[in-house]
Design a protein around this nucleic acid. Structure first.
Lengths: 208, 208
DNA sequence: AGCACAATTCATCACATGATGAAAAACGTC
DNA sequence: GACGTTTTTCATCATGTGATGAATTGTGCT
């Protein structure tokens, strides 16, 4: 269902204007949005600077002008806005008693907002591409997972949060990438109810 | 610069089928092995015919000679040998009482054998690449997951097996793709002990 | 007005990739 | 040894890619 950018048949329209446009910052945002969508939809390798530029309705060189290399664009597209969210939300408050449920609720809320879903999806897609693993380790785990684990003052936080990550990644892949039914269509509340106890176990149950 | 028009007159092409092969099978197997390794390591987009040929120590054109296009090579590299294994192993015998543990043991054993690990890893990597989702739905889920679910005579088998799939995919991604420590280095027995109860819950516990 | 500068476009470069087809080498068969 | 088939190599082609730099145009400042 990939919508195509407006063909922009600029026939009777004003001639392509060069030079500085009045609403310049518009362009940068458009590029970023297009990049987010494309990275989230088709991953890093499946996204070309040209396609991003076309989707944003700008010249490919502009992409390089605003963001540097393609890697930079990818990083900018990720731009973990999840981070401030995570730090702010009440997930970290209180003990680990209902942490599983709160993490799932946070996850669902993050996923409900396109602003945060697209970067996260792009992150997951980029994770399995060549060279992407390091990026995810440096980004997702250190910025999102580890702080949560530390905040709860768990024993073996890395180990427990890796388990949590494995469940969340699996959910993302199966539900949003593979779109495996009936999990893909399950309501968010069901996800929370199903996965919260499991995460809770990963966080607090004794590990073998 | 090429100023000559492409002649490209189809001279009598010899039918290249049938016949005997003196020292051939070696090469074909080498290409296939290299392709498996590369697809498993860097995914479809991250694998080039040239790199496969180089790893196999043959000319790139040979890859096209034995296997057709790159897609064909990918399909040949997958070649779900997981299937007969799954059908044969005792996972399906007995009731669902300890199915979680048996599934994990099967998973570990499959993963322990390079012969089956590489195609599976390639499958997972291909899953998140453009167009790969359908392949995985048609392959992994229908060939591997669903039969298991049916054999156990579960209620809501698709839903339960989707949950199992989410956990297994997450494990694969985090452990083998991202190589997130300490999960990446955890011994197989620990994996079984940790995940078996969770899978068991997905299979038999009442669903919300 | 005039000028500096940012925003934009155009025209390429350099390179890797998938793919093809023809020539050359290896090999068995007669 | 000659022949035919198969295996292998070589030389390209066409394409898409990331990236660069120069030219162009409008904006805002002085």
């Amino acid at each position: 269902m990939s919508e195509d950018a407006a063909p922009s048949a600029t026939v009777g329209r004003a001639p392509q204007r060069r030079g500085r446009r009045p609403g310049a910052p518009d362009t940068r945002a458009a590029i970023l949005a297009a990049a987010r969508t494309s990275f989230a939809a088709t991953g890093f390798a499946g996204t070309s600077i040209r396609s991003v530029a076309a989707a944003a309705g700008v010249d490919p060189a502009l992409v390089h002008h605003y963001f540097g290399t393609k890697d930079d664009l990818f990083l900018a597209a990720l731009e973990l806005r999840v981070d401030p969210r995570v730090a702010r939300l009440p997930v970290l408050e209180g003990g680990p008693e209902h942490a599983g449920r709160r993490i799932m609720e946070l996850f669902v809320s993050v996923w409900d907002d396109e602003e945060t879903r697209l970067p996260l999806l792009a992150l997951v897609r980029g994770a399995v591409e060549p060279g992407g693993a390091r990026l995810v380790q440096d980004g997702f785990f250190r910025l999102v997972l580890r702080p949560i684990g530390d905040a709860f003052d768990l024993d073996q936080p890395d180990r427990r949060m890796a388990l949590v990550a494995s469940q969340l990644f699996g959910l993302i892949v199966v539900r949003y990438v593979l779109a495996l039914e009936p999990l893909a269509s399950a309501p968010a509340s069901e996800l929370v109810a199903t996965y919260a106890p499991v995460l809770q176990g990963y966080l607090t149950a004794p590990l073998p």
